[in-house]
Amino acid sequence: MLSNILNVLPEILTALGQTFYMLGETLFVAIVVGTPLGTILYLIRPGATHHKKVLYIVLDGLVNIIRSFPFLILLIAIIPFTRFVVGTAIGTTAVIVPLSICVIPEFARLVEQTLLDVNTGVVEAAESMGANLFQIIWYVLYSEARAGIANVITIITISLLSYTTVAGLVGGGGIGDFAIRYGYYRYKIDIMFFTVLIIIILVQIIQMIGNRTVRVLDKKK
């Protein structure tokens, strides 16, 4: 068994590298696009001072629609778009497009929820001091919600890890794809078992880092 695993170790490492690549890139896009999107949703929600009815309905609807797509279907449905963006619909880089599209709305929604937990009294206090909108977002909302946002990043990272397993379908590779290839197609149970173990450990590590970060950032307790 051990020799089996040792034999495929280089391949596992490559797969891990691909997973981290997909994870890292997509997470970056999710944070950069999803945070402002979630913030906008929060700011223009019904009942807020900056409520924008039409824009809210459009963005909110869009987020809901994309979130209701199973990743596998989304991956296939947007192949033309993926080809348009990265020039190809196949490979590790190509899979980042559907991954991002899938995860941005989820990220945005969770950020919105986190911001909703911010005490509106603190926002009001900042307004009373003459804070402008940018200052309120930056110094109040993100400061108060920082532990929550770290938690969102943790949750999304773990979801992403699971989404990347589907990446194999379009030649994206990664550790999940590896597990499917060896375990499902070639019946190498020991190798699959080992890969699943790696994935479990990865999830544990991500969750642990996430929890610790949240604890450091949260000064409310």
Binding site: N119, G121, V122, E124, A125, E127, S128, M129, G130, Y139, V140, S143, E144, R146, A147, L217, D218, K219, K220
Partner: peptide, 18 residues
Amino acid sequence: ERQSIGMIFQNFNLLSNK
């Protein structure tokens, strides 16, 4: 103008992470 008008609140409304 608001900068020259201070305000305090029943629930203090301090920034909890600062």
